[in-house]
Amino acid sequence: MVLKVDHQPCDETKPILDLSSASDIEEADLKIQEACNNITSSMNADPLTIEKPAVALDLFSTAVKVRNVPLAKQCIEILNNHLNKRNVLLILHHLSKCKTQDPDPYDVEPSAPPIVDHDNQRTEDWVQDLIDNLRNNCLLEIDKNADYVLKQKDILELDYNDMLSITTRDTLQVSTEVLVYSAIMRWCIEECRRRTLHTQKINLKAVLRDLVYAPRYGLMTKNEFLCRTIDGVKGPDRSGILDENETEKILLHIKKRGKSRPAPELPYKGSLPRKVGHEKPWVFHSGVTRDSACSAKSTCDKFIINFLTCWTAIFD
């Protein structure tokens, strides 16, 4: 079932989405659940195929909200199969929003019993496992393509925890720690703008928190550490995020690096080289039987996906 979404005005869906009361919203929820069930029932004969990760992410959110485990798994498999260095930040950002919403988007209504799948695992557990496993694959993809990913503008949209997870990884295959420093500083300035804070030293340090020590300064050259600007931001010793004592220790370590009696190791892994990781990506199979002969593209299919995408955008 190849579903292509044309982002055009959804005239057909307007009456459904014109909600003015609680009963209207409840009715829309039932229609969404029915639409998801229709997709799920057709997947065995004609597996779902979505070309754009953004659409798969929206459909995954919808599947979770209506507690449709098979459809959620299928969306995650699609995302996993299409994961690459160009879309990894988009996927990671969306997964983190799913994970940190309050109240818990996967909380089951008290009046409804929890859905339990074949191996007696609650739906909420399945959802969290799906998110955690795909998120781990995102981090592995970033490890392999660190130089490319750290330069992307999309990295500025991540939340603090994702930035910390990426930049502190021992397995991040970055060619120079200057790229890590540039990424955290550009993110910090953008975060200050989001919070309407002036980019003063006190605010930079408060926003960065542990990100101050994400770059491994002891691995930089002296010129890199002392440079005036990096990608439009002040260099490490000029930005004010390190105090004078920390700067002196870093410069001493750089000066004695490689000598017979090197300086003591820096805290926060500041002088520990990163290494290539050997963790294998998680491989997911939704269990849907694939039939290469099935490739129907019906108007109904397109309508369902357009409807689900519009609904998610409005009620997310």
Rank of each mutant, 00 (worst) to 15 (best):
D104Y: 00
H198V: 08
V127I: 15
L3I: 11
I189N: 15
A45P: 01
N68W: 00
T168D: 14
I142V: 14
K205P: 06
C36Y: 00
F225P: 02
K275L: 07
T247M: 11
Y106F: 15
R238N: 10
L30K: 12
D29N: 13
P273Q: 03
P267Y: 09
V2Y: 05
E34I: 05
N68M: 01
E51N: 14
E27W: 00
A214D: 08
K302P: 04
S239V: 10
R216N: 09
L59E: 02
K144T: 13
K85E: 05
K4D: 12
Y160P: 08
I304F: 01
L197D: 14
E34H: 07
D291R: 11
R216K: 07
N145Q: 06
T299V: 09
E141G: 12
K97R: 15
K249T: 05
C300E: 11
L90A: 11
G235Q: 01
N81P: 05
P264V: 00
Y160V: 02
D143I: 07
C36E: 01
P113D: 12
T221Y: 02
D107E: 14
N87S: 04
P113E: 14
K302A: 12
K144F: 08
K275W: 06
Q128G: 10
A296Q: 06
I78S: 05
T199M: 13
D46H: 03
P15Y: 04
N120P: 00
R186V: 10
I202A: 13
V207A: 11
P47C: 05
K275T: 10
T100M: 12
L179C: 03
T123H: 10
N80S: 15
P281F: 07
D125C: 11
L208R: 04
L130S: 02
A72K: 04
D147G: 06
N145R: 04
F225H: 01
R186A: 12
S260C: 09
L158Y: 08
D154E: 10
L266V: 09
C300H: 08
Q8D: 09
T13S: 15
L197V: 10
L19N: 03
N223F: 05
A263N: 06
N136L: 10
V178Q: 06
I241W: 04
D210F: 13
